[in-house]
Amino acid sequence: MHGFRLIVVGIGVSAMLTSFNTWMLLKADPSVAMAASAWGAGTLNGIGFDKLMPAAIVLAGLVPALVLVSRPMRQFEMGDDAARALGIDPERTRRLMILLGVAVTATVTAAAGPIAFVALAAPQIARRLTRSAGVTLVASGAVGALLLAVADYAAQFAFSSRQLPVGVVTVSIGGLYFAWLLVREARR
C-alpha cells in the first residue's frame, strides 16, 4: 500500500461519494434534505446530550486503541524500512491506523457533520507549540478542541443576525490558509 496511491484513490472515492450524497439530497423529501444540508456543512448547532452520548461511548472504546497504536506510529516517521527494522509490521500497523482513523472520524462526523481543516491544522500547531518531534496525540487533540471551540464561538457571534454552521468558518479559514500557502510557494 503506497501513500501516494492511497491519496489518489481517496480523492476518487471521495468524489464518487459526494455525488452520491448530492443525488440523495435531490431525491429526498425537502425537509429531510434541508436538515441533511445543514449537517453536511458541519455544525454544532442543536447538538445536545442525546447526540453526544452515543459518540462518547464509541470514542471510549476507540481511544485506548489509539493509545496502543501511537507508539508504533511514531516509528513510522523514520520510514518503512527503519520501522520494520525496529520490529514493526508496517502493513498491519498501517491498516490498523487507517481503520482507527476512519472510525474516530466517522463517529464525530455522524454527530456533527464534516467539520474540515481542524484535523489538518491542529497537529501542526501543536507540534510548533510543544516543540516536540512528530505528531503528539494529546497535544493535537487539545489544540483541535480549542480550535473548534473558537471557530464555533465565531460562527455563533461573528454575524449577529444569523448563526453560521461551524464547518463554514473552519472551511473558510482553511481556504484562506491554502491560498496564502499557494501564493508563498509560487513566489519562491
Binding site: R74, M78, G79, D81, A82, A85, R127, S132, A133, G134
Partner: peptide
C-alpha cells in the same frame, strides 16, 4: 537502511 528519515524537530 540506506535511507532513513529523521522526524522534523527531533
Amino acid at each position: 537502511p540506506q535511507t532513513s528519515i529523521a522526524p522534523e524537530g527531533i
